[in-house]
Design a protein around this nucleic acid. Sequence first.
DNA 1: GAAGCAAATTTGGTATACCAAAAATCCTTG
DNA 2: CAAGGATTTTTGGTATACCAAATTTGCTTC
Lengths: 226, 226
Amino acid sequence: MTDETLPEQIATRLRRDILRGVLPPGTAVKERDHAAELGVSRTPLREAIRILAKEGLVQLRPARSPIVAKPSFEEVADNIEVMSALEVLSARLTCERASDAEIESIAEVADRMAELYDSLDMLDIFEIDMSFHRAIARAAGNPVLAEVHQSLLARLWRARYLSASRKRSRERVLRQHAEIVAALRARDAETAQAQVQAHLDHLLVNVADFFESVKDEDGEAPEPVE
Amino acid sequence: MTDETLPEQIATRLRRDILRGVLPPGTAVKERDHAAELGVSRTPLREAIRILAKEGLVQLRPARSPIVAKPSFEEVADNIEVMSALEVLSARLTCERASDAEIESIAEVADRMAELYDSLDMLDIFEIDMSFHRAIARAAGNPVLAEVHQSLLARLWRARYLSASRKRSRERVLRQHAEIVAALRARDAETAQAQVQAHLDHLLVNVADFFESVKDEDGEAPEPVE
DNA sequence: GAAGCAAATTTGGTATACCAAAAATCCTTG
DNA sequence: CAAGGATTTTTGGTATACCAAATTTGCTTC
């Protein structure tokens, strides 16, 4: 059952805690405390922290405790900008190279998300949504592209989760997914690229709205230190 | 003096050994041996290996020694494909957002490379060339873009070093750099993007030539294991 | 009472020892 | 002599103990 390595298990656990808000932004992630709490030693927990740092969920600081990152809107926007370029490339390559079966597997993810949208909770839907984007990146047949895309997707977890749980843009998301799938099936690279771009532009708008909406209640003084 | 952390120092040391061929592709990187050789313990060496793995210089395998990666042409081509997308994006964003001073600093790198091309050895020239590309990515004003680009650049170190030391494409490289700088100065995004794309297309051709040329002498049986 | 310095505590960095899994080798058997 | 299995060895994974740097707190002094 535990096919994944111990550091990855720990990272998954901590990631959920961070996304769910158990560990709010700014919290120090202390090796000793969390290691003791989870009943493991510091070594694997150390590696788990590196994994989360690579994903951008925690920030490493020299000679200081890593802290849970609090991404600014600019950082999230930067992420989405890069992701857009990668997904647009993915869409084109998928049209050019992917097998029909691969495109159908993308379609299946979209269908599953449409079916389950109302019966699952936001975090689960959210994971399916991520796997839709991941599927497109994978179908492009470029492992490097898939890997880089995956790492950016990981960084967006928190921001997307937060904005998704606020604003339910159910119809638009499902419609856009369907349009992307249609363009891929038709091997229409131009349309597919445009649809992907539009989809991510909407994501950016959603995220912007979210940041706008929390700007006020965000009075938790972000410690004047540094 | 030792401002960088111990794992980074070790990673730098190992990286040079790998690039210079002291550790040829396929070599197992054993924690114990290298730790003993460098007079450090396994813990920081372990982290150093993770750093190199992130850069793609070594491959991690579950329950096996990490080995020095021997990138296939396909992998290098995949890398360049993604890098192209990122640098094209960089070129556009740089035209749109960068300050004149930032563009001039890119120009300075190109000038320095042109000046020193004949007086430095290939590895140094090569590092300047990398910093030219890095400068464009930085000038785009998107830290995420710069970081992802940097990591891809790191992966290409070995392949580019090898191909660069074989084929001296001095004139074309310098001319293309100049054309890119000119387009950036003119804030001509379309031209800049096209030039960057062309530059990387040529890189791909060079790398392809290199792989073609070593294909024969590559008879070192890559251990039939696995 | 405030400011500065020193000591103690907290925290990440490093070394080392132990464990489990996998690979290789050697012995045994057909 | 070959093939298969068991044992030994190699190797990465994990736990723990120690160290050094940094922060914080409390005492002393002005």
